[in-house]
Amino acid sequence: MTRPPRPAPDAVLSVEALHVDRLGQPVVRGVNLAVNAGEVTVLLGANGMGKSTLLDGISGVVPSAGGRVLLGGADITRLSRRRRVALGMAYVQQGRTVFPNLTVEENFLVAAQRPQRAFDLFPELRSRATVKAASLSGGEQQMVVLGRAVLQQPRVLLIDELSLGLAPAIVNRMLAAVADMLAEGIGVLLVEQFADRALAFGHHAAVLARGAVVLQGRADEVRSQPEQLQAAYLGETESTPDGPNGATNGQASSENKEDA
């Protein structure tokens, strides 16, 4: 069911046949992806399927083992993390990576001289400006991380597990903030383990299984193929590591997952 990525003339980020290894093991194997300005591409998949490693490869946290990453048409595959950042890439890593012993305001200062825009995005943080990030709630910490990202004035924002351990109401608040960023023309690549909400929010979607894209298309299209999604998402494919595309055994436990 895999289709090649739509040719996207307005793609702010394109990933072409990207391979990334971790500890000498291939984890991401030949992924193609695109993110358009002002739109969200959702990256789905069960745990351990290579979603975080893919983002690490795109951002340069882990060097890629093959393929290309284009930011606004320019090849950034060989650039350092900092060069990529300077060219407009921001990366929100998994697990609320606040600097714990810095205050909220100091966390923002690391990214930019003036933290105003972050406080505009999350006015609820104003009263917490001088509190150490370590003593914030999980939701507030995630706000700090997103706020830092917006201060970087990126063209594309990679977000790994926005909803990790957060209550649904807080997740909605985060998604609202991301929507604000989209309105400014930022392209977002959002990794999620919760398929339903992410597909409702995103414009495009790709499902990763064993490091390869097994399902890709417009978010509503992916949503309208529950069997494919379920099979890919549960990772119950019996395929060989080299060619996992699409092959499924289709008999994953049916009492629990998506039936949307």
Partner: peptide, 23 residues
């Protein structure tokens, strides 16, 4: 701000680098 960035590096160097701090 430089001091803040230095402290940030000492806590999470990769995150600081991803925020554009010149390591």
């Amino acid at each position: 701000r430089v001091g803040t960035q230095v402290r940030a590096i000492s806590e999470l160097p990769v995150v600081a680098e991803l925020l554009g701090v010149p390591l």
